[in-house]
């Protein structure tokens, strides 16, 4: 069964890579802003549509389209944070109010996307430069899927370096652990929040844009993915970026191997895993450390 093992591992990692790209922004925003953003899924959906629509306008170049789409999603995220979420930070149950508010945002964005693009699914081909297969230990995987795994690792390492090695990164971590202290030390907390939210939304857009060549895109894309993302970040640890990576890879590998060995009842297992983690390690497998 060795070849099967290799194949399943590759599949699992590629699913994990995609899950990480949606989960990491969610976790980053939660870690710093303490906001669980229900609209993160529709931002992912917008990223996918952005890549499709913009690349159709721009010489059919997927990469150009994806880049513009991702930036657009980041801006939408920043506007949502500035206009809607910011007024709620100082409420006592801010986190719950914000969860429900972003739920409302998700409903609105979903409907607007339907009006703009219709309900019919869209699909775009794999970008030509990565449209070939690669052999690994006797198994083949498309170069594009390897690329997505690579991007997820680059995002992980990049964020880690940014947060530990740069001044801005230090400020973000300091603010995440003690907002009042950071404010007293002269950090412009509201602006930093908007920046982090923008960064998190960019990551959702990136995940969506890179998913577009892999699957059909419809306005409901965000509805399913947000629940998957919740599972990932809870297992890894809410607010933890490395936790999101571990959670995403575990869930991805589980999905890949589970289909082979578990005939039925697999639908409940992610939620049972989520319950077990919450009961025994509520802060997640790697959730002890702030943000990282």
């Amino acid at each position: 069964m060795f070849p099967l093992f290799v194949a399943e591992t590759l599949i699992g990692l590629s699913i994990g890579g995609r899950l990480f790209l949606i989960a990491v922004g969610l976790s980053l925003i939660f870690g710093v802003l303490n906001v669980l953003n229900f609209a993160h899924g529709v931002f992912y959906m917008l990223g996918a549509y952005g890549a499709i629509t913009v690349s159709a306008l721009l010489l059919d170049n997927f990469w150009l389209g994806a880049a513009v789409g991702i930036v657009a999603v980041g801006i939408v995220g920043a506007i949502v944070e500035f206009g809607l979420i910011r007024p709620l930070y100082d409420r006592d149950e801010a986190i719950l109010d914000q969860l429900i508010l972003t739920f409302g945002v998700a409903m609105i964005v979903h409907e607007l996307a339907r009006m703009l693009w219709g309900s019919q699914p869209r699909s775009i081909p794999t970008p030509g430069s990565l449209d070939f297969s690669v052999g690994i230990l006797g198994e083949t995987i498309t170069a594009y899927r390897l690329f997505v795994i690579g991007v997820s690792v680059v995002v992980l390492v990049g964020l880690w370096l940014f947060l530990t090695r740069t001044h801005h990164g230090h400020v973000i971590r300091a603010t995440a652990s003690d907002r009042e202290m950071a404010a007293m030390l002269g950090v412009d907390v509201p602006r930093l929040y908007t920046t982090v939210f923008l960064l998190g939304s960019l990551l959702a857009g990136l995940g969506g844009a890179l998913a577009a060549p892999l699957q059909a895109v419809s306005p409901a894309l965000g509805d399913q993915i947000i629940i998957d993302a919740f599972v990932v970040v809870v297992i890894g640890g809410l607010g933890s970026i490395s936790g999101a990576f571990v959670g995403a890879m575990l869930v991805g590998l589980f999905q890949a191997f589970g289909v082979q060995y578990i005939a039925a009842g697999d639908l409940a297992l992610p939620f049972i895993a989520m319950i077990l983690v919450l009961v025994f390690r509520p802060r997640g497998l790697l959730g002890e450390d702030e943000v990282l």
Partner: peptide, 25 residues
């Protein structure tokens, strides 16, 4: 109830979704 705030929301979500999975499968 041993968890609070968002963790409480998420664990209750998980329980209901696990039940949903059992009902539909």
């Amino acid at each position: 109830v041993r968890l609070d705030e968002i963790y409480f929301a998420l664990i209750t979500l998980s329980f209901s979704m696990a039940f949903y999975a059992v009902l539909i499968q």
